[in-house]
Nucleic acid binder design. Structure first.
Length: 726
DNA sequence: GAGCACTGC
């Protein structure tokens, strides 16, 4: 930990004048007051008092771990400190990665305002479908996935002088892969300099590059520097929790420093005894707070939509049994598949004298911050996704939270003032929890990760220096899978052209393969729509109370062949609708805004999730662009659905299932008995042979997104897989 | 006849 000694202002000859090249915004009294306020806020942040010290640490250490508690200001301030200290000379960029899109956007906006520049000039952000950067951008916020994509085009990340990985403790797959990549890039870039500074140095270890100037080589996977000179990369890993050691160890005992946060005190209260029914305990606690505690809203963490809806019902029932005066309690559900308009309700204050109780999934843990929360109820459970590589099956199972997660949840009560957190389990149970949640990379399908690493030049996946190695079985299974898809050659290299084309597409590898095949089956139009629609959250939204209406609405789009063509039908209906509207209202003002509203209403009437649909449209146009660039032939099979279904069979042959006498299905690859998910249009039809996209274990082993195919197509179209089976 | 935490290219 650094001492908190303050250094005087430095006269740094390297320092650039802040935003000297960029137009300032016009000044008026309002904005003056706002600027004053922002200045005061910045100066009062805990990080402000250690500014010089931090800059000094970055100058003297190439890799730095910063543990900053909530509210320290690290995300917004550190990049500005570094910019002012001259880290952007020669046009170099400071890159800051975030696991989430909204965070990248909102932080960039804030920092642009603090710097008094227009967004996209000195300060910008870049996320998928939305790039607000320019050649002037020096502080660039982005998602970690986007930086990974950038690395495919620029393996040395040569435009960056500093890369800051924020929220590293969340350990998303992207963060973990990025850390491995950055460790390598850092080695290569600093060794390059060392090599030049000390050409006679014979003490080269296995990481030092050999050769001089051009033809430089290194044993890392980044093999060729092409004689270009790269300045060393400064790497800063920022984490919110106290697990600095794992990061420090991974980066060769890197220096770790701690910055105080600014969080109000939260009282943690535990249950005396284990609760056999945590939903019941939740209900009791809600009313206990409502009737006994001072004003302030309640945030309850539940595992899923079903729990949320049932607690909501129970609260309403109980409420009616109370005297009129005690009924001033408002329930607001929030979970990710809820349409945006309904999600917005959590941000609206309750009417005067009322208390709001927000029933939320994990979405409220990190993704969104709800104002006004004073009480948190944490039953201690979460629905977690895991992956069984042998069965090729995902599962969504309710498990206890980790300690870090419990801490994160309780912190939600202390954002605006002192709060209370009710953990519905005894304190001794807390001690038994895992310290942190298992990193995602250890519990997911690795096909995508491996394809990307291969494209980055990593030949030896098992030997790759992951911060935490995924299970060997998962790596091998995914390698096998990629090989079967034709993405890898016999010696496990990326194949040409298929493997390289697949790596270029920002899609699940199996979907990329489907696109490549579709150009041969003359149904690429249909397949583009299909993979875009399969890449988003469920397109159909059926609220419990309008189940029947929703089913009727879905029937208008249903195809007897299965869910894939049903999705195509929905997309085309939207296309036709907008096309027709374009003809009707040529001269209207604000057409875009009106179209938005028109589409929103249409979605509502047809029980379609507008957010998912928009997302699918964005993906569709992005992927279409890629596919055109690759020179694939975009044509439509028209009404010849046979071609399309055969193409699906050729692409998803790995996921085929056969009907069994008793009406269940047997997945051919693993032999497991599975059931059709009731949301499928084929739920009642019981086709003999089907291909599916997902196999997920919840209450049963369900297959989702199906199309009926002819069994004989499998041996015909995927002989390399089925010939050896039969 | 079920129900699906979250994020990302």
């Amino acid at each position: 930990m650094p001492s908190m000694v303050q250094n005087g202002p430095r006269n740094n000859p390297q320092a650039q004048k802040p935003h000297s090249n960029f137009p300032n915004k016009p000044r008026n009294p309002n904005s003056m007051a706002r600027r004053e306020r922002i200045k005061r806020q910045r100066e009062s942040l805990p990080i402000a008092s250690v500014k010089e010290l931090l800059v000094e640490e970055v100058k003297t250490h190439d890799i730095l771990i910063i543990v900053g508690e909530t509210g320290s200001g690290k995300t917004t301030q550190l990049p500005q400190f570094l910019f002012n200290a001259g880290f952007c000379c020669d046009g170099k960029v400071i890159g800051i990665t975030q696991p989430r899109r909204v965070a990248a956007v909102s932080v960039a906006k804030r920092v642009a305002e603090e710097c008094e520049v227009e967004l996209g000039q000195k300060v910008g952000y870049s996320i998928r479908f939305d790039d607000k950067t320019s050649s002037f951008t020096r502080i660039k916020y982005m998602t970690d996935g986007l930086l990974l994509r950038e690395a495919l085009l620029d393996p040395y990340l040569s435009r960056y002088s500093v890369i800051i990985v924020d929220e590293a403790h969340e350990r998303t797959v992207h963060t973990d892969v990025l850390l491995g990549l950055l460790k390598n890039v850092h080695n290569v870039r600093s060794n390059f300099i060392k090599d030049h500074d000390n050409m006679d140095d014979k003490k080269s270890n296995n990481r030092t590059m050999k050769g001089k100037g051009t033809g430089t080589q290194c044993t890392s996977f980044l093999k060729h520097c092409h004689g270009r000179k790269f300045p060393p990369l400064k790497l800063i890993i920022m984490s919110a929790s106290l697990d600095a050691r794992v990061f420090s160890d991974y980066f060769g005992c890197a220096r770790a420093i701690h910055i105080e946060g600014r969080q109000h005190h939260v009282d943690i209260l535990y249950a005396f005894h284990p609760e056999p029914d945590y939903l019941d305990a939740t209900l009791v606690t809600i009313f206990q707070i409502h009737l006994e505690e001072t004003p302030g809203d309640i945030l309850v963490f539940l595992t899923g939509q079903e729990e949320i809806e049932s607690v909501e019902r129970l609260v309403q029932e109980q409420l009616h049994k109370l005297p009129e005066a005690n009924r001033k309690l408002l329930t607001v559900p929030i979970f990710s598949s809820l349409p945006s308009e309904q999600q917005m309700r959590v941000f609206m204050p309750a009417s005067p004298g009322h208390r709001k109780v927000i029933l939320a999934t994990n979405i409220a843990e990190t993704s969104l911050t709800i104002p006004g929360i004073k009480y948190v109820i944490d039953p201690g459970f979460v629905k977690a996704r895991s992956y069984d590589p042998v069965k090729g099956m995902e599962s969504l199972i309710i498990v206890p939270t980790s300690k870090a997660q419990a801490l994160q949840r309780s912190g939600r009560a202390g954002r605006e003032g002192p709060g209370k957190c009710f953990r519905l389990y005894p304190e001794c149970e807390f001690e038994k929890l895992e310290d942190s949640t298992k990193p995602e990379i250890k519990r997911c399908n690795l096909s995508n990760v491996i394809l990307q690493l291969k494209a980055l030049g990593v030949d030896d996946i098992i030997g790759f220096d992951f911060m935490e190695k995924p299970p060997r079985a998962a790596i091998i299974k995914s390698l096998e899978h990629l090989f079967l898809l034709g993405a890898l050659t016999d010696d496990c290299k990326l194949s040409e052209p298929i493997g390289h084309q697949m790596a270029r597409l920002p899609l699940d590898p199996i979907y990329s393969k489907a696109l490549i095949l579709a150009s041969q089956f003359n149904c690429l139009e249909e397949m583009l729509i299909t993979v875009a629609m399969l890449s988003v959250e469920s397109i159909f939204y059926a609220p419990r109370e309008k189940k029947d209406e929703a089913r009727t609405a879905m029937k208008c789009f249903a195809s007897p062949d299965g869910d894939h063509l049903t999705l195509v039908n929905v997309y085309r209906a939207v296309d036709r609708l907008l096309e027709k509207r374009k003809m009707e209202v040529v001269n209207e003002k604000n057409l875009h805004g009106k179209n938005e509203k028109f589409l929103r209403n249409w979605c509502k009437e047809n029980f379609i999730n507008g957010r998912s649909l928009r997302h699918a449209c964005d993906i569709h146009s992005q992927i279409r662009g890629h596919v055109e660039q690759m020179g694939l032939c975009i044509s439509s099979c028209g009404d010849d659905h046979l071609q399309f279904r055969r193409c699906l069979a050729a692409s998803f042959f790995f996921n085929a299932a056969l009907k069994q006498p008793e009406g269940t299905y047997r997945a051919l690859a693993s032999g497991q008995v599975v059931q059709i998910h009731p949301s499928s249009v084929l739920f009642q039809s019981k086709a003999e042979c089907i291909i599916f996209n997902e196999l997920v274990q919840t209450t049963n082993k369900y297959i989702r997104n199906l199309t009926r195919i002819d069994y004989l197509w499998l041996t015909e179209l995927a002989p390399h897989y089925y010939a050896m089976q039969s």
